[in-house]
Design a protein around this nucleic acid. Structure first.
Lengths: 359, 359
DNA sequence: TTGTATGCGTTATCAT
DNA sequence: ATGATAACGCATACAA
């Protein structure tokens, strides 16, 4: 009572009248142990309520059966799904996951990785800053690393990315296809990889259709709902009012929807709106949002699997670099009547998103 | 290249021409070390790119600076916010967090806790099953435990809970106050603590208002959107159509909204609908959902703080048992014109929920 | 099949 | 102020 009893392998050995080596063997059912001694050992362990010390074990085996996960943030559906995917992928191999967030800067990430030395077998990390290759390689010398959505591939690191460019290209192409040619963009924050790639997709889609870029229609944003609202107000007040707006993420699209609604602008009648990410509520806003679906769960699961395969692969195996598709999801916020609406497939009875909220 | 170099404290000692004890002292800036030797050691460590082995360190100090988090699931906003809260609370004390999910059954939880022995200093767990006290105490003998929303208090364990009962009571009381007396409930899954408490709150609110219970208006559900849809269909087909429905969570309320919409039933004109949880999209559905706000983030943060205080407290200190309020959030799905709508405070320019989705 | 002894990488207790 | 050296709890090579 109150005092934490610490039963070690030694007391079990004494109680079972064997050596600690034998107890160890029983618990790792490694070598040959008599059924009788095994029984005695297990009985003693049970009686003493012995819990093996995983930390000590991994010191000798140099295997922790844990992987580290370093993310810039934990806020929102995206990161939560990434973690869920990793957790699921890791569970298959009985790996524990050690998460740590608020690591936006590369130095932070290296420091965090450092503090993980000796407690993880490998690392999954999202490192958003430019020019981080050298320091990432420094981490990769210590343990296998899988990069999430890396800015560029790093030698010796596996990676799993989402094709932001293709997704943005597809959504803008869609807007053009249904007749728009004055298309604005609500940009993401400066320095953000995803934001940059989405902007590039927008620009190239315009170029591919022979439309010239319009700097006045490239509005600054930072992925927040309020930035979307402000961006909408700015567009309405500006000299040239676009007929369509591509918001670089759904939160901004939702804010934009709010601004347009407040201003009495009909969507999609007067203006088409598209987002990116396909967050859960994208279907529920009014009108339901045309957007680009990003499978964060799969991103995580694939990363976990990639890491596992690197943990098991012999030295020198080439790391894999996967890219997941980002697919256009047409709903009604762009009013494309000629395309079959995705919502037709999303009845309430479908299993999509219908899992329990709290178990 | 390819070969993972393992620099230990020993090589640093050799390179700096000191003993390993001195190197250790430098890195823990514990005892007195000459500025000169300290410099030499740090230089050597830097040159060799020495990363201390946290695992080995915690074997001698018997402190891991990590805490375990055991949850039944990682799906959805609730758990994700709990983790974010824990992460934030833990960061203040430089604690890493080791999360593991899919632990719904008590045996699972004990097994998981067991496998964490030696790698964590304490544990935050949600253990939903009944009759688990004895086994939870078994865990608590090993390290400090904080329970999330426990079925009952467990001797020696701290806990943080959400007052499901009060929240449900308040929302039903609200429905009664605005004139409803035929109030149905969409229940949560059998055996779920939250579901049971919310049902109890509903029943007692009716009783407190002198309304008699109507078993026909207690509809089975399982916290999924599709259950909400089916429940709505069942209510419309039933003998007595209620004028208001309290769904035990927001997902079911949203499904219900869908069913009513499909059937041409106006909300709140023909029927009032209320939910529970106040998930992010509750404001965005149409009509915006009156619900009960649950602060999952705070639940997590408080749990982390409670654990930290137990880690630092002397043996025998009484663990704290906190209960967080669940507060009514009135929007328009119940049509209570006499109450000031919460949305008036929720403009797009407010800071609520306006943080970045992806960093 | 079982026991003895060494080592994993560190901290901590002694000396000096 | 610094250096030997014994733990920490376990796995394992080797011996018996």
């Amino acid at each position: 009572m109150g005092v934490k009893t610490v039963v070690t392998i030694r007391e079990v050995a004494r109680a079972a009248e064997v050596s600690i080596a034998t107890v160890s063997r029983v618990f790792n059912d490694s070598a040959s142990v008599t059924a009788e001694t095994s029984r005695r050992v297990r009985a003693a362990a049970q009686r003493l309520d012995y819990w093996p010390h995983t930390g000590a074990r991994s010191l000798t085996t140099s295997r922790t059966h844990a992987i580290g996960v370093l993310l810039p943030d934990l806020f929102g559906e995206f990161f939560s799904e990434v973690i869920r995917g990793i957790d699921h992928g890791a569970r298959a191999e009985q790996l524990q996951i050690l998460v740590s967030s608020s690591h936006a800067h590369t130095d932070d990430i290296v420091a965090a990785a450092r503090s993980l030395r000796g407690r993880i077998d490998g690392l999954i990390a999202m490192v958003p800053e430019k020019g981080s290759s050298a320091r990432v390689r420094q981490i990769a010398r210590r343990f296998p690393v899988v990069l999430l959505n890396p800015r560029q591939r790093v030698e010796g690191c596996a990676s799993v990315a989402i094709s932001n460019f293709d997704g943005a290209f597809a959504v803008v192409q869609h807007l053009i296809a249904i007749g728009h040619y004055e298309i604005a963009i609500l940009k993401g924050p400066d320095g953000n990889v995803d934001a940059e790639e989405r902007l590039r997709g927008y620009q190239e889609a315009l170029a591919a259709a022979g439309l010239r870029p319009r700097p006045a229609l490239e509005i600054d944003g930072d992925f927040t709902e309020s930035a979307g609202y402000r961006g909408g107000a700015a567009l309405l007040a500006g000299p040239t009012r676009p007929t369509a707006v591509f918001a670089c993420n759904d939160y901004m699209a939702i804010g934009l929807l709010g601004a347009l609604n407040d201003a009495g602008v009909d969507v999609p009648g007067d203006m088409a709106v598209a987002g990116f990410d396909d967050i859960a509520m994208a279907r529920y806003v009014s009108p339901p949002l045309t957007t680009v679906h990003v499978d964060a769960y799969e991103l995580g699961e694939r990363a976990a699997r990639a890491l596992i395969s690197r943990l098991q692969a012999p030295q020198g195996t080439r790391p894999e670099n996967a890219v997941l598709p980002a697919t256009l999801v047409v709903r009604s916020s762009c009013g494309s009547s000629q395309v079959v609406a995705a919502d037709a497939r999303e009845g309430f009875t479908s299993s999509r998103r219908s899992r329990s909220f709290r178990s």
